[in-house]
């Protein structure tokens, strides 16, 4: 565990807490893509199946349980409790366009052709693109609430910090995992446009409105 990885995990944790607080406090999930949230729940449940096969550390297990349970809670809030506030008219990204290629890629390019490993690989590939329905929704409506933009920033920052973690691990531990690295870079690149808007607008106290 190095400082980049810890900061990445904390950023990830913060993103999810911000999202849940936003939904809970405003009693609304307006502006949040339910499709992205379903993809994230799929990411965590397929990646963390090793909770039952490998024990790494208490930290690791607690975080995994947190990510699985909060992603399920988010879906419950969006599709059951605050269903009336869910903006499904703007949440129209076809997730089959992501799920099908990611499944094929997971079956073809993996470290080991075993059920758990293929599911892990699927989840890594899926995570890299899972935010697309959310970014599509923001571009479709042309804006995002400030709290939603904080959520997106923390969620994007998490994988960017993991890239520094991988550089560190490569130099100091001789460890690298190409699948995670390539997918992590793709994931971070997808946020670049948003990062730019976040830094130039939200940090200066303006709302996140896309240029017309």
């Amino acid at each position: 565990m190095n400082v980049f990885r810890l900061a990445g995990d904390l950023s990830h944790l913060l993103a999810i807490i911000i999202l849940l607080l936003k939904i809970w406090k405003t009693r609304s999930c307006a502006g949040i893509s339910g499709r992205s949230q379903i993809l994230f729940a799929l990411v965590y449940t397929t990646r963390y199946l090793d909770l039952f096969t490998n024990f790494i550390s208490l930290y690791n297990s607690v975080m995994k349980v947190f990510f699985i349970s909060t992603s399920c809670a988010t879906i419950y809030l969006m599709y059951v409790k605050f269903k009336a506030t869910y903006d499904h008219n703007h949440d129209t990204f076809r997730i089959g366009f992501l799920l099908i290629p990611v499944t094929i890629l997971g079956l073809l390019i993996n470290h080991d052709f075993t059920p758990l490993e293929v599911l892990w690989t699927f989840s890594i590939y899926l995570e890299s693109v899972a935010i697309l329905p959310q970014l599509f929704m923001v571009s479709k409506t042309g804006d995002a609430e400030t709290i939603t933009s904080h959520y997106l920033f923390c969620l994007g920052l998490y994988r960017a910090l993991y890239i520094f973690n991988w550089i560190y691990r490569y130099y100091f531990e001789g460890f690298y995992d190409l699948i995670a690295i390539v997918a992590g870079v793709v994931q971070t690149v997808l946020y670049c446009d948003f990062f730019y808007l976040y830094v130039t607008r939200v940090i200066k106290g303006k709302a996140l409105k896309l240029p017309a």
Binding site: R5, D9, H12, D50, N54, I56, N60, M63, K64, F67, H111, D112, T114, L116, E117, W120, Y162, N165, G174, F175, Y176, D177, L178, A180
Partner: peptide, 10 residues
């Protein structure tokens, strides 16, 4: 080395 099936990251 490349670790295949043991993933210690989240």
């Amino acid at each position: 080395d490349l670790i295949g099936t043991f993933h210690d990251e989240l």
